[in-house]
């Protein structure tokens, strides 16, 4: 059998210390949140850590209001609790919608905010240890490029990796520019979304900019009054319990028929939750019309480089961006 140690950390400092100690032993130590992805990967043999440092009992498991009208979400907060929180629902409805669009009720009851951000791709090659995968075994190759990639990336992928980030929750966080609070061996720091995740490039084994031992302690949602009218639209192959084929998180600030400000991010299309910055800048100051939305979406998606079996994601993403923005206009 494959033994591993389990430790439960009481606070962030001791979690970081416990992980460092495990790493020093050469056993390989990782943080354990709800375990809804990590435990599967352990069963599949994709990862085999020697020490699991359980961070679900950390005190950072609630929602605090910040000065200026933002929210600070504890990394150990369960996804279900996040989605149901009245302030989240009122101020950032797209975040609630994204979380409840993910997985199943049972999984959301287990999954934590920090763990959700750090879940791994569901690319079937990554999950099958009998096949090559540059993300799992660097340098072994990427069979997905010529194999099954229907639900993989169309923007920002590399020769080495065409994986997508599977999280729904991360998409509105990227749109909001949420700030990830990190406690690490070198102290505390903050990384704004979408900068937590990274494009695969030549090193697809690294999903994020986190350094070994870094622990996400909280996610700060900046104040953004117009996000009170925001929306998450998820396109999926079945009506529930399926990862996004394409998803869109969008918030729109319209005044006198003109877009004053907007936030748009896409899920299911890239190695990261994809902030649609080109579309956003195209829209700021433009009329809030279908034509303008379509033009903005086209500008964003002009950088797409789809593979033969996922080219459909490009028109799909365009349609969903346009429809989501129109829905926001109609609702206002």
């Amino acid at each position: 059998m494959r033994p591993f140690a389990y430790e439960r950390a009481a606070d962030a400092r001791s979690a970081v210390a416990a992980r460092a100690a495990g790493a020093a032993d050469g056993a390989g130590a990782v943080y354990l949140g709800g375990g809804t992805n990590l435990v599967d990967l352990m069963r599949l043999g994709v990862v085999s850590p020697g020490v699991l440092v359980d961070v679900t009992r950390l005190p950072s498991d609630g929602v605090e209001e910040t000065a200026g009208g933002g929210l600070l979400i504890g990394a150990a907060m369960r996804n279900s609790d996040l989605a149901a929180h009245p302030l989240v629902r009122r101020r950032y409805p797209m975040l609630t919608q994204a979380v409840v669009a993910g997985a199943s009720g049972q999984i959301r009851n287990m999954a934590t905010v920090g763990g959700n951000l750090l879940q791994r791709t569901r690319c079937s090659y990554f999950q099958d240890v009998t096949k090559p995968c540059n993300k799992r075994a660097p340098g072994s190759g990427c069979p997905a490029r010529n194999g099954d990639h229907r639900n993989l990336a169309v923007i920002g992928q590399s020769e080495a990796c065409v994986a997508t980030h599977p999280s729904d929750m991360a998409v509105p966080l990227a749109a909001l520019g949420a700030v990830v609070h990190i406690e690490g061996p070198g102290g505390a720091r903050q990384v704004p979304m979408p900068g937590l995740h990274r494009l695969p490039g030549d090193t697809p084994e690294r999903d994020t900019v986190l350094e070994p031992g870094d622990l996400i302690t909280a996610v700060e949602l900046p104040p953004l009054p117009f996000a009170a009218r925001s929306r998450y639209r998820k396109v999926r192959d079945r009506a529930s319990f399926a990862f996004a084929v394409v998803s869109v998180a969008a918030a729109l600030d319209v005044e006198d028929g003109m877009v004053k400000d907007c936030r748009i991010a896409l899920g299911g299309v890239a190695h990261i939750p994809w902030r649609a910055e080109r579309a956003e800048s195209a829209l700021r100051g433009s009329p809030a019309t279908e034509a303008a939305f379509a033009q903005a979406a086209a500008e964003e998606l002009a950088q797409a480089t789809p593979l033969p079996h996922n080219a459909f994601k490009v028109p799909l993403a365009r349609n969903v961006v346009v429809r989501t923005l129109l829905d926001l206009v109609e609702a206002s």
Binding site: D128, K131, P143, G147, D237, S240
Partner: peptide
């Protein structure tokens, strides 16, 4: 609408070997 075992031509196996990848109708469907 859903069920499809995808053959991995390069390796020769059905590659969507779990219920997250081999979709059967969920209650919401």
């Amino acid at each position: 609408l859903f069920e499809e075992s995808v053959m991995d031509v390069e390796f020769g196996d059905y590659l969507n070997r779990d219920l997250a990848q081999y979709h059967v109708a969920a209650c919401a469907d």
